[in-house]
Design a protein around this nucleic acid. Sequence first.
DNA 1: CGTGGAGTTGAATACGATCAACACCGGTGG
DNA 2: CCACCGGTGTTGATCGTATTCAACTCCACG
Lengths: 192, 192
Amino acid sequence: MESIFETLLTSEEIPEELKERMGEHVRIQHVKKGDLLQSPGALNPGGFFVRKGLLRCYVLDEKGKEHIYMFAPAGWAIGDVEAQAFEKPSSFYVDALEDSEIIVAIEGMHNNYFESLSNEAFPGEMMRLMRRVGVLQRRVIMLMSATAKKRYDAFLKTYPDIVQRVPQKMIASYLGITPEALSKIRKEMVSK
Amino acid sequence: MESIFETLLTSEEIPEELKERMGEHVRIQHVKKGDLLQSPGALNPGGFFVRKGLLRCYVLDEKGKEHIYMFAPAGWAIGDVEAQAFEKPSSFYVDALEDSEIIVAIEGMHNNYFESLSNEAFPGEMMRLMRRVGVLQRRVIMLMSATAKKRYDAFLKTYPDIVQRVPQKMIASYLGITPEALSKIRKEMVSK
DNA sequence: CGTGGAGTTGAATACGATCAACACCGGTGG
DNA sequence: CCACCGGTGTTGATCGTATTCAACTCCACG
Protein backbone atom coordinates (compact mmCIF):
# COMPACT_ATOMS: atom_id res chain seq x y z
CA MET A 1 0.00 0.00 0.00
CA GLU A 2 2.96 2.26 0.55
CA SER A 3 4.28 1.55 -2.89
CA ILE A 4 2.73 4.61 -4.47
CA PHE A 5 4.64 6.87 -2.17
CA GLU A 6 7.88 5.04 -2.70
CA THR A 7 7.42 5.12 -6.43
CA LEU A 8 6.73 8.81 -6.37
CA LEU A 9 9.86 9.38 -4.37
CA THR A 10 12.39 7.22 -6.12
CA SER A 11 11.47 6.49 -9.71
CA GLU A 12 13.27 8.35 -12.46
CA GLU A 13 10.09 9.01 -14.36
CA ILE A 14 6.62 9.88 -13.24
CA PRO A 15 4.92 6.61 -12.26
CA GLU A 16 2.78 5.11 -15.04
CA GLU A 17 -0.14 4.93 -12.71
CA LEU A 18 -0.08 8.66 -12.20
CA LYS A 19 0.42 9.47 -15.86
CA GLU A 20 -2.57 7.42 -16.93
CA ARG A 21 -4.72 9.11 -14.41
CA MET A 22 -3.70 12.68 -14.98
CA GLY A 23 -2.46 12.69 -18.56
CA GLU A 24 -0.65 15.90 -19.36
CA HIS A 25 -1.62 17.47 -16.10
CA VAL A 26 1.35 16.23 -14.16
CA ARG A 27 5.07 16.78 -14.54
CA ILE A 28 8.35 16.63 -12.69
CA GLN A 29 9.92 20.00 -12.02
CA HIS A 30 13.14 21.30 -10.52
CA VAL A 31 12.85 24.51 -8.56
CA LYS A 32 15.40 26.69 -6.84
CA LYS A 33 15.49 28.03 -3.34
CA GLY A 34 13.22 31.04 -3.15
CA ASP A 35 11.08 30.20 -6.17
CA LEU A 36 7.43 31.10 -5.71
CA LEU A 37 5.23 28.26 -6.94
CA GLN A 38 1.75 29.51 -6.10
CA SER A 39 -0.03 32.62 -4.87
CA PRO A 40 -3.41 33.16 -3.22
CA GLY A 41 -6.23 33.63 -5.66
CA ALA A 42 -4.88 31.19 -8.21
CA LEU A 43 -7.77 29.37 -9.84
CA ASN A 44 -7.59 25.60 -10.07
CA PRO A 45 -4.38 25.63 -8.10
CA GLY A 46 -2.10 22.63 -8.41
CA GLY A 47 -0.76 20.39 -5.73
CA PHE A 48 2.89 19.61 -5.15
CA PHE A 49 4.51 16.37 -4.15
CA VAL A 50 8.07 16.77 -2.89
CA ARG A 51 10.69 14.26 -4.04
CA LYS A 52 13.70 16.17 -2.74
CA GLY A 53 14.09 19.44 -0.92
CA LEU A 54 11.67 21.46 1.15
CA LEU A 55 8.59 23.52 0.34
CA ARG A 56 6.62 25.92 2.46
CA CYS A 57 2.99 27.00 2.50
CA TYR A 58 2.01 30.30 4.10
CA VAL A 59 -0.40 33.23 4.19
CA LEU A 60 0.06 36.97 4.69
CA ASP A 61 -2.18 38.84 7.12
CA GLU A 62 -3.46 42.37 6.64
CA LYS A 63 -0.22 43.73 8.16
CA GLY A 64 1.89 41.77 5.70
CA LYS A 65 3.10 39.35 8.33
CA GLU A 66 3.81 35.78 7.24
CA HIS A 67 2.08 32.84 8.89
CA ILE A 68 3.44 29.46 7.89
CA TYR A 69 0.72 26.88 7.52
CA MET A 70 2.98 23.90 6.86
CA PHE A 71 6.38 22.67 5.78
CA ALA A 72 6.72 19.89 3.21
CA PRO A 73 9.97 17.89 3.18
CA ALA A 74 10.56 14.97 0.84
CA GLY A 75 7.67 12.53 0.80
CA TRP A 76 5.03 15.11 1.62
CA ALA A 77 2.39 16.77 -0.49
CA ILE A 78 1.46 20.41 -0.13
CA GLY A 79 -1.23 22.70 -1.48
CA ASP A 80 -4.72 23.97 -0.79
CA VAL A 81 -6.62 20.69 -0.79
CA GLU A 82 -10.02 22.31 -0.58
CA ALA A 83 -9.30 24.69 -3.43
CA GLN A 84 -8.09 21.85 -5.62
CA ALA A 85 -11.15 19.75 -5.02
CA PHE A 86 -13.90 22.32 -5.04
CA GLU A 87 -12.69 24.77 -7.66
CA LYS A 88 -12.10 27.56 -5.24
CA PRO A 89 -9.18 29.95 -5.59
CA SER A 90 -6.24 28.92 -3.47
CA SER A 91 -5.62 30.77 -0.23
CA PHE A 92 -1.90 30.14 0.15
CA TYR A 93 1.52 31.05 -1.08
CA VAL A 94 3.79 28.10 -1.80
CA ASP A 95 7.51 28.56 -2.24
CA ALA A 96 10.74 26.58 -2.05
CA LEU A 97 12.99 26.83 1.00
CA GLU A 98 15.65 24.68 -0.68
CA ASP A 99 16.45 23.62 -4.20
CA SER A 100 13.79 20.97 -4.72
CA GLU A 101 12.55 18.33 -7.08
CA ILE A 102 8.80 18.09 -7.11
CA ILE A 103 5.87 16.55 -8.92
CA VAL A 104 3.37 19.20 -9.95
CA ALA A 105 -0.27 18.37 -10.50
CA ILE A 106 -1.69 21.22 -12.51
CA GLU A 107 -4.90 22.69 -13.79
CA GLY A 108 -7.32 20.71 -15.90
CA MET A 109 -8.15 18.03 -13.43
CA HIS A 110 -10.76 20.11 -11.71
CA ASN A 111 -13.65 19.31 -14.02
CA ASN A 112 -13.79 15.75 -12.91
CA TYR A 113 -11.53 15.60 -9.96
CA PHE A 114 -13.26 12.79 -8.17
CA GLU A 115 -14.14 10.77 -11.24
CA SER A 116 -10.60 11.06 -12.55
CA LEU A 117 -9.17 9.14 -9.64
CA SER A 118 -8.57 5.54 -10.58
CA ASN A 119 -9.18 2.59 -8.32
CA GLU A 120 -5.54 2.01 -7.60
CA ALA A 121 -4.93 5.66 -6.96
CA PHE A 122 -7.63 5.97 -4.35
CA PRO A 123 -5.97 4.27 -1.41
CA GLY A 124 -2.92 6.46 -1.87
CA GLU A 125 -4.96 9.63 -2.05
CA MET A 126 -7.02 8.63 0.94
CA MET A 127 -3.99 7.84 3.02
CA ARG A 128 -2.39 11.13 2.21
CA LEU A 129 -5.53 12.99 3.15
CA MET A 130 -6.00 11.12 6.38
CA ARG A 131 -2.43 11.61 7.37
CA ARG A 132 -2.83 15.29 6.71
CA VAL A 133 -5.98 15.44 8.79
CA GLY A 134 -4.01 13.82 11.60
CA VAL A 135 -1.28 16.42 11.39
CA LEU A 136 -3.84 19.21 11.37
CA GLN A 137 -5.71 17.71 14.31
CA ARG A 138 -2.61 17.82 16.44
CA ARG A 139 -1.76 21.29 15.21
CA VAL A 140 -5.17 22.67 16.17
CA ILE A 141 -5.02 21.11 19.62
CA MET A 142 -1.54 22.50 20.15
CA LEU A 143 -2.49 26.01 19.07
CA MET A 144 -5.61 25.98 21.24
CA SER A 145 -4.23 24.54 24.43
CA ALA A 146 -0.45 24.82 24.71
CA THR A 147 1.88 27.69 25.59
CA ALA A 148 4.52 28.87 23.14
CA LYS A 149 7.20 26.90 24.96
CA LYS A 150 5.24 23.66 24.81
CA ARG A 151 4.49 24.14 21.16
CA TYR A 152 8.18 24.60 20.50
CA ASP A 153 9.05 21.46 22.47
CA ALA A 154 6.52 19.50 20.48
CA PHE A 155 7.89 20.88 17.24
CA LEU A 156 11.44 19.87 18.16
CA LYS A 157 10.29 16.32 18.77
CA THR A 158 8.09 16.05 15.72
CA TYR A 159 10.31 17.77 13.16
CA PRO A 160 13.89 17.61 14.45
CA ASP A 161 15.25 17.66 10.90
CA ILE A 162 13.33 20.76 9.83
CA VAL A 163 14.65 22.75 12.75
CA GLN A 164 18.13 22.49 11.28
CA ARG A 165 17.09 23.49 7.80
CA VAL A 166 15.03 26.65 8.15
CA PRO A 167 15.74 30.02 9.78
CA GLN A 168 14.47 30.40 13.29
CA LYS A 169 11.99 33.09 12.40
CA MET A 170 10.14 30.59 10.23
CA ILE A 171 9.83 28.19 13.11
CA ALA A 172 8.37 31.05 15.09
CA SER A 173 5.96 31.82 12.29
CA TYR A 174 4.86 28.19 12.18
CA LEU A 175 4.32 28.18 15.95
CA GLY A 176 2.26 31.35 15.80
CA ILE A 177 4.68 33.50 17.82
CA THR A 178 7.18 36.26 17.04
CA PRO A 179 10.87 35.61 16.37
CA GLU A 180 11.72 37.57 19.50
CA ALA A 181 9.53 35.36 21.65
CA LEU A 182 11.12 32.21 20.28
CA SER A 183 14.58 33.63 20.87
CA LYS A 184 13.72 34.21 24.51
CA ILE A 185 12.22 30.75 24.90
CA ARG A 186 15.43 29.23 23.57
CA LYS A 187 17.49 31.30 25.95
CA GLU A 188 15.42 30.02 28.84
CA MET A 189 15.96 26.45 27.73
CA VAL A 190 19.76 26.49 27.61
CA SER A 191 20.03 28.18 30.99
CA LYS A 192 18.71 25.05 32.69
CA MET B 1 -22.27 13.17 -6.17
CA GLU B 2 -23.97 14.66 -3.17
CA SER B 3 -26.48 11.90 -3.08
CA ILE B 4 -24.60 9.87 -0.53
CA PHE B 5 -24.85 12.68 1.97
CA GLU B 6 -28.49 13.21 1.33
CA THR B 7 -29.24 9.53 1.64
CA LEU B 8 -27.36 9.34 4.90
CA LEU B 9 -29.33 12.25 6.20
CA THR B 10 -32.86 11.43 5.16
CA SER B 11 -33.40 7.75 4.55
CA GLU B 12 -35.23 5.73 7.16
CA GLU B 13 -32.79 2.88 6.95
CA ILE B 14 -29.05 2.81 6.54
CA PRO B 15 -28.34 3.21 2.83
CA GLU B 16 -27.78 -0.08 1.03
CA GLU B 17 -24.51 1.16 -0.31
CA LEU B 18 -23.17 1.62 3.17
CA LYS B 19 -24.49 -1.69 4.45
CA GLU B 20 -22.86 -3.65 1.69
CA ARG B 21 -19.59 -1.97 2.35
CA MET B 22 -19.48 -2.23 6.10
CA GLY B 23 -21.68 -5.19 6.87
CA GLU B 24 -22.46 -5.42 10.57
CA HIS B 25 -20.06 -2.65 11.39
CA VAL B 26 -22.51 0.15 10.96
CA ARG B 27 -25.78 1.00 12.69
CA ILE B 28 -28.17 3.83 13.41
CA GLN B 29 -28.22 4.93 17.01
CA HIS B 30 -30.19 7.39 19.09
CA VAL B 31 -28.25 9.13 21.82
CA LYS B 32 -29.28 11.56 24.52
CA LYS B 33 -27.82 14.89 25.45
CA GLY B 34 -24.76 14.29 27.57
CA ASP B 35 -24.06 10.75 26.40
CA LEU B 36 -20.37 9.99 26.06
CA LEU B 37 -19.72 8.13 22.83
CA GLN B 38 -15.96 7.79 22.80
CA SER B 39 -12.97 8.35 25.05
CA PRO B 40 -9.26 8.81 24.32
CA GLY B 41 -7.36 5.56 24.15
CA ALA B 42 -10.16 3.61 22.52
CA LEU B 43 -8.71 1.13 20.05
CA ASN B 44 -10.19 1.02 16.57
CA PRO B 45 -12.43 3.92 17.41
CA GLY B 46 -15.55 4.43 15.35
CA GLY B 47 -16.63 7.40 13.36
CA PHE B 48 -19.98 9.15 13.72
CA PHE B 49 -22.18 10.66 11.08
CA VAL B 50 -24.83 13.01 12.46
CA ARG B 51 -28.36 12.78 11.04
CA LYS B 52 -30.00 14.98 13.66
CA GLY B 53 -28.70 16.80 16.68
CA LEU B 54 -25.22 17.95 17.64
CA LEU B 55 -22.05 16.16 18.68
CA ARG B 56 -18.84 17.51 20.10
CA CYS B 57 -15.24 16.35 19.96
CA TYR B 58 -12.77 17.51 22.61
CA VAL B 59 -9.62 16.79 24.62
CA LEU B 60 -8.65 17.37 28.24
CA ASP B 61 -5.29 18.93 29.05
CA GLU B 62 -3.14 18.05 32.06
CA LYS B 63 -5.10 20.51 34.21
CA GLY B 64 -8.39 18.88 33.26
CA LYS B 65 -9.46 21.79 31.09
CA GLU B 66 -11.60 21.02 28.05
CA HIS B 67 -10.52 22.06 24.56
CA ILE B 68 -13.15 21.58 21.90
CA TYR B 69 -11.70 20.38 18.63
CA MET B 70 -14.90 20.50 16.62
CA PHE B 71 -18.69 20.59 16.63
CA ALA B 72 -20.69 18.31 14.36
CA PRO B 73 -24.26 19.35 13.52
CA ALA B 74 -26.49 17.35 11.18
CA GLY B 75 -24.74 16.40 7.97
CA TRP B 76 -21.28 16.30 9.49
CA ALA B 77 -19.04 13.43 10.42
CA ILE B 78 -16.89 13.42 13.51
CA GLY B 79 -14.16 11.27 14.98
CA ASP B 80 -10.42 10.76 15.03
CA VAL B 81 -9.81 10.16 11.33
CA GLU B 82 -6.18 9.25 11.76
CA ALA B 83 -6.90 6.77 14.53
CA GLN B 84 -9.59 5.11 12.43
CA ALA B 85 -7.37 4.71 9.42
CA PHE B 86 -4.07 3.78 10.99
CA GLU B 87 -5.15 1.65 13.93
CA LYS B 88 -4.03 4.11 16.50
CA PRO B 89 -5.93 4.70 19.72
CA SER B 90 -8.25 7.67 19.47
CA SER B 91 -7.17 10.91 21.09
CA PHE B 92 -10.56 12.51 21.61
CA TYR B 93 -13.69 12.47 23.68
CA VAL B 94 -16.90 12.53 21.69
CA ASP B 95 -20.21 13.33 23.35
CA ALA B 96 -23.69 14.56 22.47
CA LEU B 97 -24.66 18.18 23.11
CA GLU B 98 -28.26 17.48 22.09
CA ASP B 99 -30.42 14.42 21.69
CA SER B 100 -29.09 13.09 18.42
CA GLU B 101 -29.60 10.48 15.76
CA ILE B 102 -26.34 9.23 14.36
CA ILE B 103 -24.82 6.57 12.17
CA VAL B 104 -22.03 4.76 13.96
CA ALA B 105 -19.22 3.06 12.09
CA ILE B 106 -17.61 0.68 14.52
CA GLU B 107 -14.68 -1.64 15.03
CA GLY B 108 -13.84 -4.43 12.62
CA MET B 109 -13.25 -2.33 9.58
CA HIS B 110 -9.71 -1.53 10.53
CA ASN B 111 -8.09 -4.61 9.10
CA ASN B 112 -8.85 -3.60 5.59
CA TYR B 113 -9.96 -0.06 5.90
CA PHE B 114 -8.80 1.13 2.53
CA GLU B 115 -9.66 -2.02 0.63
CA SER B 116 -13.09 -2.10 2.17
CA LEU B 117 -14.05 1.18 0.56
CA SER B 118 -16.01 0.50 -2.57
CA ASN B 119 -15.76 2.49 -5.77
CA GLU B 120 -19.01 4.26 -5.23
CA ALA B 121 -18.16 5.07 -1.66
CA PHE B 122 -14.87 6.67 -2.47
CA PRO B 123 -15.99 9.99 -3.87
CA GLY B 124 -18.14 10.52 -0.80
CA GLU B 125 -15.34 9.66 1.56
CA MET B 126 -12.89 11.81 -0.32
CA MET B 127 -15.19 14.78 -0.34
CA ARG B 128 -15.81 14.52 3.35
CA LEU B 129 -12.11 14.36 4.04
CA MET B 130 -11.29 17.27 1.78
CA ARG B 131 -13.99 19.38 3.26
CA ARG B 132 -12.63 18.59 6.68
CA VAL B 133 -9.12 19.52 5.63
CA GLY B 134 -10.52 22.83 4.43
CA VAL B 135 -12.16 23.50 7.78
CA LEU B 136 -8.98 22.61 9.59
CA GLN B 137 -6.88 24.79 7.31
CA ARG B 138 -8.95 27.83 8.16
CA ARG B 139 -8.94 26.91 11.82
CA VAL B 140 -5.15 26.69 11.96
CA ILE B 141 -4.73 30.02 10.19
CA MET B 142 -7.21 31.63 12.54
CA LEU B 143 -5.54 30.28 15.66
CA MET B 144 -2.10 31.33 14.44
CA SER B 145 -2.83 34.80 13.21
CA ALA B 146 -6.02 36.28 14.62
CA THR B 147 -6.89 37.83 17.98
CA ALA B 148 -9.60 36.38 20.16
CA LYS B 149 -12.08 38.97 18.98
CA LYS B 150 -11.46 38.23 15.32
CA ARG B 151 -11.75 34.52 15.90
CA TYR B 152 -15.10 35.09 17.56
CA ASP B 153 -16.32 37.27 14.70
CA ALA B 154 -15.33 34.58 12.21
CA PHE B 155 -17.07 31.95 14.29
CA LEU B 156 -20.28 33.97 14.36
CA LYS B 157 -20.27 34.21 10.59
CA THR B 158 -19.32 30.62 9.95
CA TYR B 159 -21.51 28.89 12.52
CA PRO B 160 -24.36 31.27 13.38
CA ASP B 161 -26.64 28.37 14.21
CA ILE B 162 -24.25 26.70 16.62
CA VAL B 163 -23.86 29.87 18.65
CA GLN B 164 -27.51 29.60 19.65
CA ARG B 165 -27.33 25.97 20.60
CA VAL B 166 -24.32 25.60 22.90
CA PRO B 167 -23.33 27.32 26.14
CA GLN B 168 -21.00 30.22 25.74
CA LYS B 169 -18.16 28.57 27.58
CA MET B 170 -18.00 25.94 24.86
CA ILE B 171 -17.63 28.60 22.21
CA ALA B 172 -14.77 29.97 24.26
CA SER B 173 -13.24 26.52 24.49
CA TYR B 174 -13.51 26.10 20.73
CA LEU B 175 -11.86 29.48 20.17
CA GLY B 176 -9.02 28.65 22.52
CA ILE B 177 -9.83 31.32 25.11
CA THR B 178 -11.37 31.38 28.59
CA PRO B 179 -15.08 31.93 29.21
CA GLU B 180 -14.25 35.16 31.04
CA ALA B 181 -12.37 36.51 28.05
CA LEU B 182 -15.26 35.76 25.72
CA SER B 183 -17.69 37.40 28.10
CA LYS B 184 -15.61 40.58 28.02
CA ILE B 185 -15.32 40.51 24.25
CA ARG B 186 -19.07 40.29 23.94
CA LYS B 187 -19.51 43.18 26.33
CA GLU B 188 -17.21 45.28 24.18
CA MET B 189 -19.21 44.42 21.09
CA VAL B 190 -22.62 45.51 22.35
CA SER B 191 -21.26 48.79 23.73
CA LYS B 192 -20.59 50.04 20.22
C1' DC C 1 -37.47 27.32 48.03
C1' DG C 2 -32.31 26.14 47.67
C1' DT C 3 -28.56 24.52 45.01
C1' DG C 4 -25.29 24.34 41.40
C1' DG C 5 -23.90 25.62 36.83
C1' DA C 6 -23.50 29.57 33.60
C1' DG C 7 -22.38 34.06 32.87
C1' DT C 8 -20.56 38.61 34.38
C1' DT C 9 -17.43 41.78 36.53
C1' DG C 10 -13.19 43.45 38.64
C1' DA C 11 -8.28 43.25 40.33
C1' DA C 12 -3.97 41.33 39.92
C1' DT C 13 -0.90 38.73 37.14
C1' DA C 14 1.53 36.55 33.26
C1' DC C 15 2.63 35.86 28.72
C1' DG C 16 3.72 37.28 24.41
C1' DA C 17 3.78 41.43 21.16
C1' DT C 18 5.85 45.55 19.92
C1' DC C 19 9.55 48.70 19.46
C1' DA C 20 14.27 49.85 19.45
C1' DA C 21 19.13 48.95 19.75
C1' DC C 22 22.84 46.07 18.85
C1' DA C 23 25.92 41.85 17.72
C1' DC C 24 26.96 38.65 14.26
C1' DC C 25 27.87 36.78 10.22
C1' DG C 26 27.90 35.98 4.79
C1' DG C 27 27.99 37.82 0.93
C1' DT C 28 29.21 41.66 -2.68
C1' DG C 29 31.54 45.14 -4.70
C1' DG C 30 35.10 48.59 -4.35
C1' DC D 1 41.56 42.29 1.17
C1' DC D 2 38.57 45.02 3.41
C1' DA D 3 34.51 48.00 3.90
C1' DC D 4 29.94 47.81 3.51
C1' DC D 5 25.54 46.02 3.71
C1' DG D 6 21.19 43.39 4.56
C1' DG D 7 19.32 39.79 6.90
C1' DT D 8 19.17 37.02 11.14
C1' DG D 9 19.12 36.57 15.78
C1' DT D 10 19.54 38.59 20.56
C1' DT D 11 18.42 41.51 24.39
C1' DG D 12 15.91 44.91 27.13
C1' DA D 13 11.93 48.12 28.14
C1' DT D 14 7.35 48.80 27.64
C1' DC D 15 2.68 47.78 26.35
C1' DG D 16 -1.54 45.11 25.58
C1' DT D 17 -4.23 41.12 25.56
C1' DA D 18 -5.83 37.28 27.75
C1' DT D 19 -5.40 34.39 32.18
C1' DT D 20 -6.21 33.61 36.82
C1' DC D 21 -8.69 34.10 40.89
C1' DA D 22 -12.51 35.65 43.45
C1' DA D 23 -17.02 37.52 44.22
C1' DC D 24 -21.52 38.07 42.72
C1' DT D 25 -26.02 37.53 39.90
C1' DC D 26 -29.19 34.88 37.57
C1' DC D 27 -31.76 31.16 36.31
C1' DA D 28 -33.06 26.29 35.45
C1' DC D 29 -34.01 22.42 37.83
C1' DG D 30 -34.14 19.48 41.73
